[in-house]
Design a protein around this nucleic acid. Structure first.
Lengths: 325, 325
DNA sequence: GATGCGCCCTGAAACGTTTCAAGGCCGGAA
DNA sequence: TTCCGGCCTTGAAACGTTTCAGGGCGCATC
């Protein structure tokens, strides 16, 4: 304990504090022998600059704010977060997780961070049409990037995964496997990512879209109704894995074999998709790439560089046994 | 933008900065009319104290450090993290996610945070026997609490879930369902939580423990070998869900019906357990309670209160169809 | 022998708070 | 009237950095 300060280092090395600071932040300004001496004192005392003091003067906190999506809202949260933290760390930044305090609304919490200068920038996820956070952040001028398009707000940099293309991969795969007629379980209209995925499904007489709320149980119920029809679909897809898993459960309930009697495909490649039997074919979002793009873009803004161009990344299809052998 | 400072507030309210500070931090020291006037200026200017300045002077960062476990290492990470963030937020704290920088070891990263005063305290998870982090933190005197016991290190406060009891719940449940003979898939000896769970399994002629590495594929392989025996077990348990799910897959491969021909139970109640068919009976850890205890304990230390007593929490069994109808 | 130019280094201001000794003021007690 | 104590407020120091104008010194140039 008893952290040492830059003052102690400078005294011990027989230089001024400014020089020590330069050794750390602008080494080329310091003569070789001086630098060596200072560095040795630094490691001798195990000195690390105090972050608060540095922040105060530099008007930088080296912290990026992120608000966790509600539990169960983000598939692959752990890989996304991990990637985010890793990418940030590469730039000397850390991720600060915040949450509304007692009596605060969601937006209040964002406001607090902004006005208090608590973070250098923010990462948003789970964005949707007319996202109020985006308007707030745009007004306040805080650097931010969002995971998810924000097309109807003032333009701001985003990174997103092309849900329409992902769904097209699913459809093509099912059609190639000989299923001309496909039923899609989709969320109610009005969610940007859901609508995007449905868009890739395409219209047509041999395409049916059914709207339900998300979740396993809703999928199961829907499955029972679909598979109980006179001419049940031979292939079903979904805009999220848990709906698909629910339909798989319904098929099992009815004694049907998923993969043989009926093909099922999901979306997001959640952890569960790989752990069920048969494995669930699903669309995988390149989360680590998303995180890297987000952080790189944010850092570019922070460093006063150009506002990065938004990026639409391509997902890929992970084929498993649920869509046939 | 253009954040306002305490100086602007004090000027505008016609008081000194000290008074404004007191309004915020020690309201009882300020006369009512003054307080009201200052508060109105504060909200007029939308003033929020600058965190870096406050930290510098108060030698408090209002940040708790947490190192994410490797991806896929923590079941229920999102519920745990959410609970952690929420509990911290209740005390005006936020969670800072850090990660070793380029060239740093895991421990170096902890050292950096400590010496730089980057965080007020730390939360550890995935602790194990002779955890070097615990020794480091104990030496350095930084407040911390760990999720997981650290019995062989110097004593330090922890919160844990009683794995032995959890496993006992599984065994009792299976025995009650008429399975006298049970096989347990366990990790190799040497992991504190794994060993704890095995301990609850109990010895005996009708108990068999098989050691394998974790993961779905290892479970599947093990399942094939178990179910291919002359007299296959009628009930299998596992120290983690993915092993159990692998065994379920093996059963399906062999045309056996899980829940009827064989009972399967897992541990951790991961998201997948509820999403497979049949649902996987599993042991649920009270993650939100764990998080609350951790933060409450840490806050007590930070506030100079007593070092909290460690707590062993009880898990419960979530019974689903995999262990019979 | 001046002059000019680079290179290093110093000293002090600044960042925005909190804290605390000191002092003004008012009312009540002597 | 004087003195005392409590309440409220002020002013300035302190927290540990970064930044930047300025100065000393050695060397090349004229």
């Amino acid at each position: 304990m008893g952290r040492s300060t830059i003052r102690e280092v400078s005294d011990r090395a027989g230089v001024s504090v400014g020089t020590v600071s330069n050794v750390l932040n602008a080494p080329h300004l310091v003569a070789d022998p001086t630098r060596a001496r200072v560095l040795s004192v630094i490691s001798e005392l195990d000195y690390r600059p105090n972050r608060a003091a540095r922040s105060l003067q530099a008007r930088r906190t080296y912290l990026i704010g992120y608000r966790l999506p509600g539990p169960g809202k983000s598939p692959a949260l752990d890989v996304f977060l991990h990637a985010l933290v890793g990418a940030a760390s590469g730039h000397g930044l850390e991720i600060a997780l915040f949450s509304p305090r007692h009596g605060e609304t969601e937006l209040d919490a964002y406001r607090r961070l902004i006005r208090g200068g608590d973070v250098d920038g923010l990462v948003l996820s789970e964005t949707n049409y007319r996202d109020p956070r985006i308007e707030l952040l745009n007004e306040s001028g805080v650097p931010f990037v969002s995971f998810g398009r924000a097309l109807d707000s003032q333009p701001s940099p985003w990174v997103d995964v092309d849900g329409a293309s992902g769904m097209r991969l699913v459809v093509d795969h099912l059609v190639a496997a000989g299923h001309p007629q496909i039923t899609l379980a989709a969320w109610p209209e009005g969610s940007e990512s859901g609508d995007d995925r449905v868009r890739g499904f395409g219209p047509g007489a041999n395409r049916e879209v059914i709207r339900v709320l998300g979740g396993f149980e809703n999928g199961r119920r829907l499955g029972h109704s679909l598979f109980g029809r006179d001419r049940p679909p031979t292939a079903v897809a979904a805009v999220e894995d848990s709906l698909a898993l629910g339909m798989m459960a319904a098929a099992a309930d009815l004694g049907m074999s998923v993969g043989r009697d009926v093909a099922v495909a999901g979306f997001d490649d959640s952890e569960a998709a790989a752990l069920v039997t048969p494995g669930l074919t699903s669309v995988r979002q390149p989360m680590d790439q998303v995180a890297r793009c987000l952080i790189d873009g944010l850092v570019s803004i922070l460093d006063g560089g150009p506002v990065p161009h938004s990026r639409l990344l391509m997902p890929d299809l992970v084929v498993r046994e649920s869509t046939g052998r």
